[in-house]
Write a protein that binds this DNA or RNA. Sequence first.
DNA 1: TCCGTTTATGCACGTTTATGCACGTTAGAG
DNA 2: CTCTAACGTGCATAAACGTGCATAAACGGA
Lengths: 259, 259
Amino acid sequence: MQPDLLLRQRQNLIQDRLRQSGRVLAADLAQEFSVSEDTIRRDLRELAAAGLCERVYGGALPVAPGGTFARRMGEAPERKAALALAALAFIKPGSTVFFDAGSTNLAIARALPDDLALTAVTNTPLIATVLVEKPEIDLILVGGRVDRRVGAAIGAKAQRDIETLRPDLCLLGTCGADIDAGLTVFEYEDAEFKRFVARGSSAVLAAVTNDKLGTSAPHRVVAATGCAALVFEHDAPADVTRPFETAGITIAHARKAHP
Amino acid sequence: MQPDLLLRQRQNLIQDRLRQSGRVLAADLAQEFSVSEDTIRRDLRELAAAGLCERVYGGALPVAPGGTFARRMGEAPERKAALALAALAFIKPGSTVFFDAGSTNLAIARALPDDLALTAVTNTPLIATVLVEKPEIDLILVGGRVDRRVGAAIGAKAQRDIETLRPDLCLLGTCGADIDAGLTVFEYEDAEFKRFVARGSSAVLAAVTNDKLGTSAPHRVVAATGCAALVFEHDAPADVTRPFETAGITIAHARKAHP
DNA sequence: TCCGTTTATGCACGTTTATGCACGTTAGAG
DNA sequence: CTCTAACGTGCATAAACGTGCATAAACGGA
């Protein structure tokens, strides 16, 4: 197989991969484009020098801009990718899925396979930019005033937009998950909106990173039992996760993240 | 085989190939047109200098290649950045501005100074992700079904969302700008939506790259005189831009892009 | 018509670029 | 700590590139 790609084309494709997958591996790219890893490394170095990606050992990550919102999205990407893979099992082809704001839900959007047909609904522009690149996804954007702290439209207008929709699944973003406090968030308006969406959905799913597990924030969205299923990390402390299981909630564990 | 083609004919065919294939190789073109590679390189250099293609080692790429939406947004960044800077002069602090889909409008969003207070409205998730990072901007997201070809919400729902808004300025994205054809785009629904927004706005502004200047697409959004102002590149051909000026449209020229 | 000018092209030559390979170095997992 | 895979650097090479120059056709004014 010949390279058969101009340098700039290759670099453009690498950028696509970065945006879509949230990371690239030098070895994968080398095989895919039929060039040596040296060439890929040179590409990544140039993209990094141009501020278009961040070089890491083994590959590269999308550039993490200084913005308050986008930064959270880029933290612990491999853990969230693992969580996302586990969450995919709950997403049925052809169903309507609401993607709430949150870095874990962004990871889930990235992890969606290209051949998965869905009606996706989101109030989060950043998640929308990922979903719009997926060929088989019908994307519906929820409008309204965008709250900068949350990075998504969560006001009265947003609520009106979704009240006519009945998603089969609501992927809820959360700031804390505790068996007693339930799923909680920091912003009052955000909680109000999420609660509204959750009530309008057939099922609620939340993927929870370890740092949120067993903690609570000021505003409850739903009780723990209000979730149909939860996805935890592979190394989530068993003593914290046990109560969720005994409460009758479906629990899935992610595989170990291997970068 | 003889050359048997005039210079312009050959260059036009090269542009066709670019649009069709997404790239051209100098060697292929030389053989196809029965001229030396030197001549092809000269052609490509001229086309690139006029902003009609991007020179790369081995051939050339289109300025707006047929790749994914997000990638189109990132093409020819320095020319668009220069165009954006010139467009900023028309954006008044405190006003309400609609950002239509389009890579040039993305560049304008990026170029907004951090201390500029605006109410920004957009139907384009990618532009929204840029605007949400600007501290002084009140961002309103237009919802609805997202058209993948356009990368923005443009349906009936989107029209209802904006019909209550009366932007002071509409930054219109366009696929062609011609004195007779007016501002034109490729998609019927897109034209319908843009026309609706433009009519509801106090003023319409379009920033036009050279490759769109003097060309037309199937669907007219507004007549040329429907624009309050147009922004052209520094090296836009005077014989094409003159008619816009004589039609009474305010014209601004970008400064030379210096990479 | 004639002759100078412009323009498009091809060729020769030195330069730059993209890429792969060899080799020593370093990061990161166990 | 040790070991492996990824890394950077230097170098070699072939292809692509730009430039200067020559040629020939097209053009344009006297």
